[in-house]
Every structure is written in C-alpha cells, then in structure tokens.
Write a protein that binds this DNA or RNA. Structure first.
Lengths: 344, 344
DNA sequence: TGTTAGCACTCATCCCGGTCGAGTGCTAAC
DNA sequence: GTTAGCACTCGACCGGGATGAGTGCTAACA
C-alpha cells in the first residue's frame, strides 16, 4: 500500500459517501484527477479489491468500499473539521428553551443530533454514579413517591405503597436517615453501609425492602435511560429504500435494550467508531455507530451519545457534530446549575 | 341501499381488510356466496361505486372500499367481539412486572397495544386534573428538585435554581404552604388562590415566579405526555411498502405535538374512530385513528389511548383490544394503589 | 518498469411488443 | 330481477434487443 493507493481509496470512499453509487475508474480519474488515466486507476482498484478494501457488486459496476475501507478511512484517511460557526450556533440555540430535567436535555439533544446529521441520534444518560438524595413524598395514606436524585443530576421517581402504620413524619425521618447513610455512595457501596433491615413491624420491613429494591433498579442503567431521536431520518437514505432492511433496523432501534448495551460498552471512551460487521448485531450489518462521551456540566457523571447511520456515513461530519454537542452539553449544564443566570 | 347492498359491501370490506387486494365480483360471489352470480354482484358493485362507497383503481382491477365505506362499516356493519380469553390473559400479564410510575405503565401499554394489533399504539397521559402535592427537594446549595404530583397519579419533576438566601427549611415550609393553598385545585383555579407574589427579596420573588411558571408547564398536557409504541409495525403492512408514504407517516409520528392534539381532541369520548381524510392531516390521508378513554384506577383523571394504522384496519379487533386494555388499566392501577397486595 | 490507449467482454437497465388473466360493462335471454 | 355470454380493458409478466457504464487484458510507449 503506497501513498497513491491511499489517495485513490480515499477518493473512492469520499465519492461513494456522497453519491451512494458504485464508483468507476473513470470518475476517479476525472473528478479526483492527479493526472492518472482511468486504466491506471483500474489497476490500482483491482489491487485494492484484492486487499479487501473494495467490493464489486457485479462485473460491470464500479466499486464499493468494504467495511475494512471505512475502518481505514476513519483511522487514517479522513480529517475532522470543526463544525461551522453557523451550525454551532444553531446547535446551541436548541438548549436556550427551558429544560426542566436531564430527560428534557437528552431528548432535545438526540433530536438535534438527528437534525444536524440526518441520521439517528441516541443518548445514554450519564451513569447514575453516587446517590445524592433520597426523598419520600407522602401522597395518600398508603402511597408515597420515592424521589431519587443522583449526583449527576439524573433523578427518578417511583410510586410505592406505604403500610398503614407509617405516617408522613416517619417517611420524612426515614428519608433523612437514608440520605445520611447512603448519599455519596455508589450502588456497590450501599449494601455494606446498611447491614440490617430496618423496621419493627412486618409492614415497615416490607417498605424498607421495597425501597432498597426500587433504589437498585433506579440506579442501574436500563432502557429508560436510552433516548432515541430521528429514526425516520434513516428512511431518507437510499440504503433503506429496501423495506426489508428498514423494517429490521427500525425494529431493533425500537427495543432499546440492545442500544443500551451498545452504548454502555462504549462508556468512557472519548470517541469510538464501530462499522457494520464490527457491531456484531444481526439487524445492523450495514450500520455504523459513532459515539462520544459527554458530561452534563463539571460535576456529574459521564454519559455516552452517538449517531447511527448506514456504513456509508459522513464520518467526518458526524464526529464534528458530536464534538460540538459534547461541548454544548458541558456548557449548558454549567449554566443550568448557576442560579444567577437568567434563562430565556 | 337495500339489505343486500349492505351485505355485499360488508363482504367487500371484510375481504379487502384481510387481503389488501382489490376485490372482484367473482370473489364475492364464490367466497361470500349468498347464491348470487358474479354478474349480479357486478351490478350491485357498480351501484355502490356510484354511491361513493367503492373506488376502482383502474378498469380491470377489482374494487376498493372508500373512506365512506369504512365509515359505514364502523358505524353500522361490523360487530365487535370481546377479546379471546387467551389474549386477554396475555395482555394482563404485561402489567405483572413492576411499574414504578405512570410513565412505565403507559410505555408498557403502548407496546402491548402495538403487539396485539400489529399497528402503532399511542397514549395520552390522563389530564393533570387537580394538584395533589408540591414538594421542593433541596439538592445543592443553589438547586432544588420540584416534584409535582397530580391527583391522577401523574408526577413530574423539574430542576430549578434556588437563590442563596433560601435554605432547606424555607423550601420545606414553602412546599407545605403551596400544597396547602393549591392542592385540590385545577390549573385554572390556582391563579385566584394566589393573588400576591410571595417573597421579600428579589431572589425569593424570582424563585416564586419560577415555581409558578414551571407548575403551569407541568400541569398542561404537552408532548411529554404522549407515548408512542411500535411505529415499525406499520412497515409490515403493504400500504407502506411505498417508502414515500412510510417516511411521511413516521416523521409525523415522531413529532408528538400533532398526536397530542389529536388525542386531546378526543379526550372523554368513550370511543372514537376517525378515518383517513376525516383526520385532516396532510401526512395521514390513508390512516385511521381509533381511540378510547381510559382511567388508571378509580380515583384519577381520564386519559386517551388509541391505535393508528392504515384505513384498511381491523377495526373490530382494534376496538376489542382497546376495550380490554381499558379494563386492564382500570384494574391494574387499583391493585397498584392497594399496598397490601403483593406484587410479582 | 510504470503508464496508457485500445478493445473485447460483462451485465444491469431500459424499452418494446406480445401474451395472459383478472375483472368489468353490456346485452340478451330466462 | 337475475344470469350467462362475450367483448373489452389494463396491469403484470416475459423475453429480447439496444444502450451504456465499467471492467480486464494486451500491447505499445516513455
């Protein structure tokens, strides 16, 4: 593989990403010149095919990059420009509207990712990290709302039954007690901190068990911490004019469990690009997933967000959008946490 | 329109719903017999077309029901059987798993609707109704979580900034004060109950304004109170093998605002069926929406849920599924509110 | 030895004309 | 009012020829 081969391969990939049509030697020779005739390009392309970087749909079609080619492209050939200022501004505008919760921020962000890239945006909420506060809000005589707030700003609610012999005051005391004992701790650190089961009556012990069970569930990443936006954008790309493919992909995106584990696997990686077969998911052989890590402001934990699209993806652009979004989320949340800032 | 015409029209619609193919006179004569020859059926079909109940894609194809025909079908011709016991049991199983909040119930329900009907399920959360409780949970020195619980069991959170001169105790007192003054009131009744803006310092007044603003937003139905499930199911129906149609429909379903208003319009109606052009939405000319009202248990408010599919929809089955779901939600939530019940 | 022009070959796509068959509308007879 | 018969329509399917993009190979050239 000499420099010229790389150059030709890059030209082929660039062209294919743009047009979605198999690329012929003549196209490369004319559009991406470098003073070589189509015959020479043909020889090189033949070599590249032998090396596994190009596929030929049939004899008299042009060539199509293989997933290996994209891998090489992402690792070595492409260059990532930073997002144009204009678009960057557009991105930041999205976060100007009032956001009441982390969930709102994630929803807005996925939508923006898909708008800016024309692919599908996905976000995994920041890992729960440490508990900040646990509060039981009495609702009726026999129900209470359990509000769990994590250090990263994520919060979850659960409606739980309360035995008759536990009143509002006791719920309040229990909230404070549990917050004292558990705040600042991760899920793993909690069990040792609470060796005994609290409660004198059967009902109280049941309540306590229920609380711990619910807390456990809330602090683990689950499907509710995955947000998907813009799945219909995928239907606009020619690879999904085949209904069969569209069906199977959209079904996969709808059951969020698989997405959750995909994103969780990539948690903490500054960025990652996974191409087609590398995903090892039956319904997504011709998809790529590009992810980056993000944080909502300085304090909290780290989440993972990404873009899903066809392997023929504008990797450079997607990466620059994701990078811009990462910055926006960082800053937005710092602003959210500053009470002196006036929001629009 | 004599009885025989009705009978023939019903047969045509039944057959078309089943096969998605234009129905010919011979088919009706043989499959749905009634001892008439195809020639007679042809004459009747010709009349039905003149009356506006049938369309002809082209001369030598069979006939296809018009939206008027579906309207007549739904209003007079079809009969709704109750859901087979087996499927009813399957439906109820879904609610056996632990549900921490109304949101979880809605998500599970839409998924079940779409699984049982093979169309898309939509739910609008019960209208906020009256406020039950408002609680401010201090999180950091300058943020608090505002937890709003409505009488129907719906609850929402918002992270809000807190001025430096308001401490946890004051937040607690403020929560109790506001709950005292506002609980049991609808959004409309609140403003008269709070003529003056509370607070001595600038910050306190800002906090108060912010609380009222957020409360307002939380109690109004918005896009977050719409849940959609199983959009990819639609791709399995032949009317959406045309990518263009699929695109425009899925895009519409993704922006939940339109759905929210559609469902809100039908709030309180025991059931409703809206067919194609009656929806008056550009992207949904060939869709139908079937809705019913539901309540989560006895106490709370009333929500609206529905199924969206092609006009060629199994209306009877959809209505029976919705009816079964309505019952299931009623009962499930009664159980949830009973603390003595052991959940699976 | 690398590059290029030339040429035969492949193969998907498009278009064309013919056939087939499902379905209609009309008419005349029952 | 019903039905058999028949001519007619029109989409779907099929096979073949033309078109053109693109390749692989070979021989000549620098």
């Amino acid at each position: 593989m000499d420099a010229r081969k790389y150059k030709i391969l890059k030209a082929i990939i660039d062209d294919y990403i743009l047009t979605a049509m198999p690329v012929g030697s003549r196209t490369i020779s004319k559009k991406y010149g470098m003073g070589l005739s189509s015959a020479t390009i043909r020889n090189e392309m033949s070599d590249l095919e032998e090396l596994g970087y190009l596929d030929q749909p049939h004899t008299s079609a042009g060539r199509v990059p293989s997933w290996r080619a994209y891998r090489l492209y992402v690792d070595q050939l492409m260059r990532v420009a930073s997002l144009p200022a204009e678009e960057n501004a557009k991105l930041r505008e999205i976060f100007q509207s009032s956001m009441d919760s982390v969930q709102d921020v994630l929803t807005a962000a996925t939508r923006a990712l898909s708008e800016l890239t024309d692919y599908t945006g996905v976000m995994l909420a920041p890992s729960a990290g440490r508990l900040k506060r646990l509060q039981l809000v009495p609702i009726t005589d026999n129900t209470a709302l359990m509000v769990t707030v994590m250090e990263n700003g994520v919060h979850k609610d659960a409606m739980i039954p309360v035995p008759a012999d536990v009143g509002p005051d006791q719920l309040y005391m229990l909230s404070n007690y549990l917050t004292d004992r558990l705040s600042g701790k991760t899920l793993d650190q909690m069990l040792p901190a609470l060796p005994e089961i609290l409660g004198e009556t059967e009902g109280q012990r049941a309540l306590f068990m229920r609380l711990m069970d619910t807390l456990h569930r809330q602090m683990e990443p689950d499907k509710s911490s995955v947000v998907v936006g813009g799945t219909s954008k995928l239907l606009f790309h020619p690879e999904y004019s085949d209904i069969e493919r569209a069906r199977s992909l959209l079904s996969t995106l709808e059951t969020k469990e698989k997405l959750a584990s995909l994103l969780a696997q990539r948690a903490g990686l500054s960025f990652s690009v996974t191409i087609g077969p590398e995903l090892q998911l039956p319904g997504m052989q011709d998809c790529s997933l590009v992810t980056v890590s993000y944080a909502l402001g300085d304090g909290g934990g780290v989440g993972t967000m990404g873009v899903i699209g066809p392997t023929r993806m504008q990797y450079g652009r997607v990466l620059s959008v994701l990078d811009a979004m990462r910055r926006a989320l960082q800053e937005t949340n710092n602003r959210r946490e500053d009470p002196h800032h006036e929001e629009g």
